[in-house]
Design a protein around this nucleic acid. Structure first.
Lengths: 248, 248
DNA sequence: GCAAAAGTGTTCTAGCTACACCCATGC
DNA sequence: GCATGGGTGTAGCTAGAACACTTTTGC
């Protein structure tokens, strides 16, 4: 970032009136996903206690403070909702239709975050909100919830976009690693189930294994730990670990 | 979008105080690209007449009005800068570091737009701004300008991200078609040069042709018009057209 | 004739897909 | 012994990369 502020700049700043225009509210909404190996993709939603859309489910979010960046605001929201720090998180899209919130003009910068599957039960930190995990899947074009869910605002569109993005990123990033229970001790089976949950379809174990070896192990992203894994089957498999354990 | 506003909602709205919090300014910045077949990728930049960063080049942009969506704000800016309507445009990313603008807290929702190459000379609509086209290329990680350019704010980072996105989308979308002079009358050569300009590398004509036939013609996106093209070489080639000429 | 684009053909390779098949073990 | 996951093998298909070669025509 260019930080060459000149004296002229400084002089100008003194006379600049910050509050001369009407401004939209800016919120950060965060889609918090996890994968339950046995049951698939889950999304954290909050039951709204106040109008508008009282009683409906909504993606958690809040206003951006003046002294924090968008990323910081999202990280704060994420920590408030989950009680966990250091989760994977990235910006999704910014929604800004005029009447998406009936109260006033709200622009929502959305993020999605990935919670390792074993943290699923920890997440109940926010006292005020009735937060809960919802089974969700993107079946072609259609967004499907296991339960009956009434979504607030334009949140269905946001959720659909998030899952599409997740699906897309599976093929060319190692994003799925952020969903395993332990990055230093995961099995191919666990990673496969995560991929299946996001893609909402079954994958061939033989081909998945080979693609993992090719795209992760051979490229130095992951390595065989040697330790046997007996979590998922009678016959022992292997635990793998990410290679740079800085972000354990 | 969910528009089920209840009576309770309406009641709540009356008592809601819109202006109770400090709010960041929200701007829309738009990266306007074109390709000059002979010289490569070009980006429209404005010379800043006032501090901060007076005299530096900047991506054109402006505040979002309260009665327009983000997309509408971007389309308005785009029309103001280029004098052209109906250009391809899509959201890129939202930048929100606290001090990216030294005056006040500014959140910028960025868009990129694509101008057909023959419109290059038309673009000089905005009287106030000294807008100009700049040759730009993304060479690996490094952003390169042919001229000497001093960029304002964090606009270098924004430009880099935009070109990366463009490069990525070439392979799995038909986005390059938005840069040909005439979607109903373009040659494979023109499309190849556009791809080369964005990717900043030469492509094999034989392979490019085959990939065009496979990904555009065989999939019904484009068709051979039968009309010979003599623009680019002694030997005649063919003009192709997009198949649904709605957005001619 | 030369340069440059138009166009066809060929070969090699990497990666994905769909399978068939065997192994190990808990129940 | 059977279901389930672990793991190897293999054959077919496809897209892409590299490159050789011919054609056309303005200069």
């Amino acid at each position: 970032m260019n930080t060459n502020i000149t004296d002229k700049d400084r002089e100008f700043l003194k006379t600049y009136d910050v509050s001369q225009y009407d401004r939209p509210s800016v919120t950060v909404d965060i889609l918090i996903f996890t994968v339950d190996i046995k049951h698939g993709l889950k999304l954290l939603l909050i039951k709204r206690k106040h109008p508008p859309f009282q009683g409906c489910q909504a993606v958690p979010g809040g206003f951006v403070n003046m002294d924090e960046s968008l990323d910081e605001a999202a990280a704060r929201e994420l920590a408030e909702e989950t009680g966990i720090r250091g989760l994977h998180m990235e910006q999704l899209y910014t929604f800004g239709s005029v009447n998406r919130d009936p109260r006033t003009r709200v622009i929502s910068v959305t993020y999605f975050a990935l919670v390792p599957s074993d943290k699923l039960n920890l997440v109940a930190a926010d006292d005020a909100a009735e937060a809960g995990w919802f089974d969700v899947a993107l079946d072609g074009e259609e967004l499907k919830f296991t339960q009956d869910v009434e979504l607030a605002f334009d949140h269905e569109e946001i959720i659909r976009l998030a899952i599409e993005r997740l699906q897309g990123k599976l093929s060319y990033t190692d994003i799925a690693l952020n969903l395993v229970k332990d990055k230093r001790r995961f099995s191919i089976y666990e990673l496969q189930k995560i991929n299946e949950a996001i893609l909402n379809k079954e994958l061939d174990p033989a081909n998945f294994r080979r693609s993992f070896i090719m795209n992760y192990v051979n490229k130095g992203l992951a390595r065989d730990t040697g330790e046997p894994c007996r979590e998922y089957s009678a016959r022992a498999s292997k635990y793998y670990s990410i290679t740079s354990p800085d972000e354990a």
